[in-house]
């Protein structure tokens, strides 16, 4: 099998705030025989909801990253749903709108770059879930008995309505969890926005959105929420105290990256997956897998 190589765009959040996502990604990519080459000198893609305030600027920022990946001859992979959505959308616009591409390329000249629309943009979870057989084969330490609420969030799917992608009934997150031996629960709000973009600008709304998600995850019998986005992770995990203070609730729902769960199932020691930096400790079934991984 030829080794798959991608240009890897970690995004600002992964630099530190979501380092565990980065660490676990690197670990499982190695096991899966996938090479992730970090894009040299990448810049922020401007994913927050407000950057679209100047769309041409947003396209320019994304295009610089796309151009650098194209120069390497590689497709781009982003682990952050926000970054992914932005660069995916930018890519589609540039391929379709020649005037736009021409103008953006005019700006890129300043950095001796040019983008010709030759690459694709993938979300990290896509590239792993494309090869479920391989995932299953590598999951020698299956997460038996772990009930996972797979949280897609919003930007990972929407708004790609016209690309014959199933944006309303996706299954790949569930299938991936099944492949590593965990049990995906029926998580009704799995596609519902968590409100991360509003945490500063409309705190009330954001906290209530987080509360709804936590409650729904508990109702569905989950031990843990799995995410594929640093913004979702931080929003769902780190704000539980505030939610509890605001609504008089007592939530304490662990939230991990799908890559951390995959890593555990592959027998990688917890520490190397950044497990231990979370606010809320892992549930029993995960701890058992951690012990087994450490013993290997």
């Amino acid at each position: 099998m030829t080794k798959k190589t991608f240009a890897y765009f970690p995004g600002c959040s992964l630099e530190k705030m979501a380092e565990s996502y980065h660490l676990s990604t690197v670990e499982i990519a190695r096991v899966m025989g996938m090479e992730l080459k970090e894009l040299e000198d990448w810049n922020c893609c401007g994913a927050t909801a407000y950057f679209h305030v100047d769309e041409l600027l947003a396209h320019t920022l994304c295009a610089r990253n796309l151009a650098m990946a194209e120069k390497e001859g590689l497709d781009l992979v982003a682990p952050c749903s926000g970054c992914y959505k932005n660069m995916h959308a930018c890519n589609a616009h540039l391929k379709k709108d020649h005037d736009l591409a021409d103008h953006i390329n005019f700006a890129l000249e300043e950095d001796n770059l040019r983008y010709d629309g030759k690459i694709k943009v993938h979300h990290l979870i896509e590239v792993f879930s494309e090869d479920l057989k391989e995932v299953k084969a590598k999951a020698t330490n299956p997460l038996t008995g772990l009930k996972v609420a797979p949280y897609y969030g919003c930007q990972i799917l929407r708004p790609r309505k016209f690309e014959h992608e199933n944006v309303e009934e996706p299954r790949y997150f569930e299938d991936l969890m099944t492949a590593i031996g965990a049990t995906p629960v029926d998580f009704l709000l799995r596609l519902r926005c968590c409100g991360a973009a509003l945490i500063i600008t409309n705190r009330q709304a954001a906290l209530s959105m987080v509360r709804n998600l936590l409650q729904n995850a508990l109702d569905s019998g989950a031990d843990v929420i799995a995410t594929a986005c640093p913004l979702c992770q931080v929003n769902l995990e780190c704000y539980q105290d505030q939610v509890n203070a605001e609504f008089g609730t007592k939530y304490s729902v662990p939230v991990f990256y799908f890559t951390q769960l995959m890593g555990l199932s592959m027998g990688i020691p917890a520490k190397r997956l950044g497990i231990g930096t979370e606010f809320l400790s892992p549930p029993a079934a995960m701890l058992a897998a951690c012990r087994k991984a450490a013993a290997v």
């Binding site: 100047d54 769309e55 041409l56 600027l57 396209h59 005037d99 736009l100 021409d102 103008h103 005019f106």
Partner: peptide, 11 residues
């Protein structure tokens, strides 16, 4: 979308 007048002038 932004400073599109500049796009036109360039074109």
């Amino acid at each position: 979308r932004g400073a599109e007048g500049i796009m036109i002038a360039r074109k």
